[in-house]
């Protein structure tokens, strides 16, 4: 400690300060890349969608089919298609995902959990094209066509079941997080009053976790609406000429599948008049819907965080 200490010796070397600032700047740039991506997504969607919105003959946006190459842009065909697929998917992944979450969080022993959890994660890792193929080649003939005689192999119901299976792990994992966030003291308090496990779970745990469970449901709905390949492969909208239908046993298309259909088949996304722009219009509608759902879900998640 012979060296005399002055303010200068305590200020550190300017080279080191420069080095530290440079590292921080590089990291900050990396973080702002995400902002640039969002801006570019919105920019590319809005630029072409705006052309569609300003130039389209609005009478063609209400009709009975989505066939952009023929100048028919009935948006409700796609929205209702998305809705049908999502409802069927949620009828599968909602209860099953929740049930799986309850089992993992409340019933499974540590050892059982160690096996089940990774297996669910493998299911989560199955690419959607694989589920699409499975929906078309297995679910449709073995479930839908067997239950409803005379149904085409391509139908919205099979696609919906495929999307449902695809989203089980997502629903289950977010719901499990919500259940795990319920403090153990509540479980102990309920058990201490002599309640059985089933009573504790249904009357104490589930109500306490309801915000997180709602969030799980909404996020899963958002994913189901945004799922493309299962519907594209299994629902039969591939020719990009989808008729309006309210029956899930018919062939049909969704917002996502229509986008994929339009981009595939030929070398480029071209066609008559506003065909190209209609793709971006549908994309924008899809983007707004899923973004809204995600923001709502985020609110619910935050509510859980502040409470516990």
């Amino acid at each position: 400690m012979a060296e005399p200490i002055s303010l200068e010796t305590l200020s550190g070397s300017s080279r080191r300060h420069l080095n530290e600032s440079a590292v921080k700047a590089v990291m900050a740039v990396a973080a702002t890349v995400s902002l640039a991506i969002s801006a570019l997504i919105v920019f590319s969607l809005v630029r072409e969608a705006w052309v569609f919105i300003t130039e389209v003959e609005w009478s063609t946006v209400w009709g009975s089919s989505w066939a952009p190459r023929l100048g028919r842009y009935d948006l409700k065909t796609l929205v209702v298609g998305s809705l049908l697929v999502t409802i069927i998917a949620m009828a599968v992944s909602g209860p099953i995902g929740l049930g799986a979450a309850i089992y993992l969080s409340e019933y499974a022993s540590v050892r059982v959990r160690k096996v089940l959890k990774p297996t669910l994660e493998i299911l989560a890792g199955i690419p959607s094209v694989v589920l699409g193929f499975f929906a078309l080649q297995w679910i449709s003939p073995n479930v839908i066509q067997r239950l409803f005689d005379g149904t085409s192999q391509f139908n919205l119901a099979a696609a919906g079941l495929g999307v449902g299976i695809l989203t089980i792990p997502l629903m289950s994992s977010i719901a499990e997080d919500a259940l795990k966030a319920v403090p153990n003291s509540l479980r102990e308090a309920s058990a201490g009053l002599g309640a059985r496990k089933v009573t504790t779970t249904i009357q104490v745990i589930l109500p306490a976790a309801v915000s997180g469970l709602v969030a799980a449901f909404i996020v899963t709905v958002s994913r189901a609406i945004g799922e493309t390949m299962v519907v594209f492969i299994a629902a039969g909208g591939g020719g990009n000429n989808a008729q309006f239908t309210l029956s899930p046993l018919d062939s049909g298309s969704t917002m996502t599948a229509a986008m994929a259909a339009q981009a595939s088949g030929t070398d480029s996304v071209v066609g008559e008049a506003l065909t190209f722009q209609s793709l971006f219009f549908v994309g924008l509608v899809l983007f707004v819907i899923t973004l809204s759902l995600n923001i709502v879900a985020d609110r619910f998640v935050r509510r859980v965080r502040t409470r516990y």
Partner: peptide, 16 residues
């Protein structure tokens, strides 16, 4: 922004 990006449907990234 990052959490919302994670929820954007993959097909929309295709548009980008």
């Amino acid at each position: 922004n990052i959490r919302n990006l994670a929820g954007v449907p993959s097909v929309v990234y295709g548009i980008l």
